[in-house]
Amino acid sequence: MSDYLQRVSGFFQALGRPVTEQLVALGRAARFFVEVILASGICLRRPGLVVREMYFIGVMSLVIILVSGLFVGLVLGLQMYDTLERFGSGDIVGMVVALSLVRELGPVLSALLISSRAGSAVTAEIGLMKTTEQLTAMEMMAIQPVARVVAPRFCAGILSVPLLTAIFNVVGIFGGYLVAVHLLGVDTGTFWSQMESAVDFRMDVVNGFIKSVFFAVAIIFIAVFQGFHATATAEGVSLATTQTVVKSALVVLGMDFVLTAFMFRGI
């Protein structure tokens, strides 16, 4: 009888454990978020640290952002023109490319690209520092690792992602322009004027920018959190790096829906 009871309670324990573990992780993440925000004052006191991290997060991601942006724009131009031409409205291809890039594809795709290019690197770097006990050594020297290691990366990420998104958008529109005007023969003036009349500054450009800022906070926070709380083994760091990319992708896509629902509900 007692054996049976034990098995039943064991079943419920096994059912509840993942839930409580997730809740504990969420609580730890929230506490860490506040800690990072409080430590972010160092970004103003020592801008040199932020500039160094911006080099690794921003400048090193430029190539992948430029190339992907260009090809996304090229493909969008081709695909949209093909479909729109069936309704005889191939001329509005500029507007469609610009709207879809500025509103959705730019913020989401660049966030995904940056999280896999820079987010994973940040996680691996911090995780390795933890594994080799550099973080503990810092604490021994009365240097706060959250302020010295985490906060500059956090600030640099938040500054870099919106800028990279803007570059992605512009390069994508240029790609659409190349395909539409030089390959498919849409008139240059029509391409730009249709785009100008359809894209609204407040509704589209500003909302896209706000989206990219939210994504920036999400992906860079996931990256530093995973790194800082990685298990201090080689296996732990590799797991944390994978988790960064997976979780960033899920959070970005989920957040995109929520933000879009908030922003474009009025139309």
Partner: peptide
């Protein structure tokens, strides 16, 4: 390092200005 980061920030701001002025008119 400062040069590259400066170039990156300038590029990003130029892109934002282009988006607001040329694309959104």
């Amino acid at each position: 390092l400062d040069f590259w980061v400066g170039l990156f920030v300038a590029l990003g701001i130029a892109a934002l200005v282009f988006l607001s002025l040329r694309v959104a008119n």
